[in-house]
Simulated assay, not measured.
Amino acid sequence: MRTAAEPIEVRRPSAVRALTVLLGLTAAATVVVELLNWWYAPEQEFGLAVRTGWALLRSLGFLVLIGHVDRGRAAAKPFGLILAVTTVFAVGRLVVPRAGVPPLPGLLGFGLLTALCVAVVALLYRSDVVGGHLVRHRKGLVVSGGRLSWQELVPKRPAVTGWLLTARVAALTYSPLMLVPALVAGGSILSGRLSAVPAVLFWLAAGVAVSYLVLFCTAFLLRGRPWARKLLVVITLGALAVDLPLCWWLLGLDGLIRDGVPLLAAAALALFSLHRAAARTR
């Protein structure tokens, strides 16, 4: 017999439980596919190690996303979208070798990982049950009536659209997507290409600067400041103007495809999200 003081366990909807399992499988698949790519790579060079390490960090991102889903956080949708898209690019650029045919296990693993990422995005954005679950905000300490309590922090800013949140999350990936190829280019310095030192240092500094600019800009973007949207467009174009030429010069066409295209995809998603958010407010 249940007493009045005994807590009642709320069972999560089946779609939410399925999403949690799917995210766990995607995290595991990311690790397995990256290890396969590393094993079958003809040369375990410095650049491959950096790109593989960055891709492996995404498995931790999926674990963080599981926590957001369990807590019903509204930010889980845009976070899951950009994580799935950039994971496909990050892993896909390592499957194809510089020369020759990709190994069959790597191709099969990449196909499975892509299917899992598509399924994650479909559940996040197409399931009404999941959408109804992801409505909460983070919790924090709140002073109310002279008492300190731990409760949900409802934002004081006006409600923002999911497209603005997506633009913010996409823009937050600019910095790591710039720093990874900069670190790869740093490997050429170790091999004696000292003329690349100024360019690599500038690349690293630009990647760090972009992270601070995006944090500043998106803080006002979510508060509905019109100038913040224009500033984010400028930051996006500036990041592309720095990253793509340096990828071409220091890493060649192979580096431009492997490291430039993921940033281009994130930038396109951010700009598209800004456009959709602006269209909704008209």
Results as ranks from 00 to 15, higher is better:
84 A>C: 08
140 G>D: 13
224 G>F: 03
281 T>K: 06
98 R>M: 12
80 G>W: 12
119 A>K: 01
111 G>Q: 05
88 V>W: 06
25 L>D: 15
8 I>V: 15
189 I>F: 00
202 F>A: 13
48 L>K: 00
13 P>D: 12
104 L>I: 13
278 A>V: 01
32 V>I: 13
121 V>N: 00
11 R>T: 15
273 S>I: 03
206 A>T: 03
216 F>C: 02
69 V>R: 01
124 L>G: 12
240 L>I: 13
192 G>M: 11
282 R>L: 13
118 V>F: 08
233 V>L: 06
249 W>K: 05
193 R>K: 02
7 P>H: 07
181 P>C: 04
11 R>D: 13
83 L>D: 10
272 F>T: 14
214 V>K: 10
78 P>M: 02
207 G>R: 05
5 A>F: 11
82 I>T: 15
51 R>N: 05
171 A>H: 07
150 W>C: 06
81 L>S: 08
266 A>F: 04
260 G>R: 05
41 A>W: 12
189 I>Q: 05
18 A>W: 01
6 E>D: 15
97 P>I: 10
199 A>N: 00
56 L>K: 01
100 G>I: 01
121 V>F: 07
90 A>W: 04
163 W>D: 11
90 A>P: 10
77 K>C: 05
247 C>D: 11
72 G>L: 10
23 L>V: 14
94 L>F: 00
107 L>P: 02
104 L>D: 08
223 R>F: 08
167 A>M: 09
10 V>K: 09
46 F>M: 11
262 P>T: 08
218 T>M: 04
22 L>P: 12
10 V>C: 07
3 T>H: 12
241 A>W: 07
8 I>H: 07
3 T>K: 12
231 L>K: 06
44 Q>K: 09
39 W>A: 10
36 L>G: 10
89 F>E: 15
196 A>V: 03
237 L>G: 02
119 A>G: 08
182 A>G: 06
227 W>N: 01
26 T>V: 09
19 L>H: 08
110 F>R: 04
227 W>Y: 12
223 R>H: 07
167 A>G: 03
61 G>P: 00
278 A>Q: 04
86 T>A: 00
194 L>A: 14
146 G>K: 02
106 G>Q: 09
118 V>P: 04
262 P>A: 10
193 R>L: 08
278 A>T: 14
12 R>M: 15
33 V>F: 09
16 V>E: 06
4 A>W: 09
110 F>N: 00
107 L>A: 12
195 S>F: 10
198 P>D: 13
83 L>R: 08
241 A>P: 09
156 K>G: 15
208 V>W: 06
10 V>H: 14
159 A>L: 15
194 L>Y: 03
107 L>F: 02
107 L>N: 00
38 W>N: 04
201 L>C: 00
